[in-house]
Design a protein around this nucleic acid. Structure first.
Lengths: 136, 136
DNA sequence: CAGCATCCCGGGAGATACTG
DNA sequence: CAGTATCTCCCGGGATGCTG
């Protein structure tokens, strides 16, 4: 993988193995594309955090779903779970090296989001209005 | 956009508005994180393509879901739909400028995927084995 | 060839209650 | 405080059949 350079600027998805890349991308999105994962990663990107701190930070997540999301991330080696055997129990979660490595590509996407989301959501509304104008 | 430089290397998600960025990222993933969208974008990244060509290219997608996915992308202004009033009908889909702009961040994520997916999926299997060893 | 409507199933995810 | 189990509802998405 030493010969993987930043070759193309505009369309690196194109090529012989473009299909394979899409599939890999698909698997990643299967993992991080669910409802809560990126919120958790984002929260932990600041540093280790306790369960209830995440629960309060991530608006709308349920106790159960946070548990499941963290379990998934832990299982995939993206998050490390540390239990402090105190009373009451204290459990801290933090990103692993792999988990932290995810922040950069996510940030790229985030920048794209900030730049293009307004146009996208505007387009969506416009099309909806067109549709209802034509249909009703 | 001229003052957007490659400033941070490691944790651009961190900061005052880190939460807002997560939310924007969440909305993008809501859009592209579904089962077929990135496959369609990947397919169209090579150039315009007809409905049935996409149907054959994207393994496993149903007629119905491809239609819905394309409609969604069209509504969000990521894909342009062109109907040629021939017999039989011919409909071509292609990425818009915004749609093409998505390729680059997706490519970043794709590179990450290629690099880290093996470790992730290995970790997953390992943890599963641990769990079944402990549980039964 | 392209698109829409209908039926139907499985899984994602919330609420709640219990355990350590 | 942290985690698990159960019930339940809702909707994503596959199969199929009709239209132009």
């Amino acid at each position: 993988m030493t010969n993987i350079r930043k070759t193309t600027q505009v369309a690196p998805l194109v090529g012989q193995d473009e299909h394979a890349r899409c599939k890999a991308l698909g698997r990643v999105l299967d993992r991080i594309g669910d409802k809560w994962t990126i919120m958790v990663v984002g929260g932990l990107s600041k540093g280790p955090m306790r369960f209830n701190a995440l629960l309060r930070l991530i608006d709308g997540v349920s106790h159960r779903m946070l548990t499941l999301t963290l379990r998934g991330l832990e299982q995939d080696g993206l998050v490390k779970r540390t239990v402090y055997p105190t009373v009451p129990p204290k459990v801290e979660y933090e990103l692993t090296a792999v988990g932290r490595s995810l922040i950069e590509p996510l940030s790229t996407l985030s920048s794209w989001a900030e730049k293009h989301l307004p146009a996208i959501e505007a387009a969506r509304v416009t099309k909806e209005e067109e549709a209802s104008a034509a249909g009703g």
